[in-house]
């Protein structure tokens, strides 16, 4: 019975890993690739560690596997955020089908600070124009 659970957990984990790597191979630009790899990759590693914990059925092993899972759960989003931020500042090209780049107007390229567009921003940042809906729409 426990062998069956282990087998299912391992196969699910490996499927998530393969999904993540197919995503990293096929998707068009850096943020989408990161989106595929970090979430699915972390899920795959967590499933595999759950399989290990079930297989050994020991308190010490369970604690270690749990520690690995918690560690991956904490660090994967941080690493993804940090790399995505660095890639954005490097100016890696986005996919040509990108609809909207919300950060473009609000990020200061020099100081790497984010402005919401509602506070008085320095000259290096051009705040986005919040245009009032004029009468042109009604005509």
């Amino acid at each position: 019975m426990s062998e069956l659970i282990v087998a299912i957990l391992l196969l699910t984990g490996a499927s998530f890993m393969i999904l993540a790597s197919v995503g990293i191979l096929r998707l068009p630009d850096l943020p989408t690739r990161m989106h595929a790899s970090t979430k699915a990759g972390a899920m795959g590693a967590m499933m595999t560690m759950a399989g290990v914990a079930v297989y050994f059925a020991d308190v010490v092993v369970f604690t270690r596997a749990f520690a690995i899972v918690i560690f991956i759960l904490i660090t994967a989003p941080i690493a993804a955020h940090v790399i995505g931020r660095a890639g954005y500042f490097l100016g890696t090209p986005l996919w040509e089908g990108t609809v909207k780049d919300e950060l473009k107007d609000n990020y200061d390229d020099k100081t790497h600070k984010l402005y919401s567009g509602f506070e008085p921003a320095p000259e290096s940042v051009i705040p986005p124009k919040h245009e009032k809906r004029s009468e042109d729409d009604e005509d």
Binding site: I24, R33, M34, S37, A79, I83
Partner: peptide, 11 residues
């Protein structure tokens, strides 16, 4: 680009 490589190293 280099960030792409770092992401794949992470994976």
């Amino acid at each position: 680009s280099l960030p792409d490589r770092v992401v794949s190293l992470e994976l």
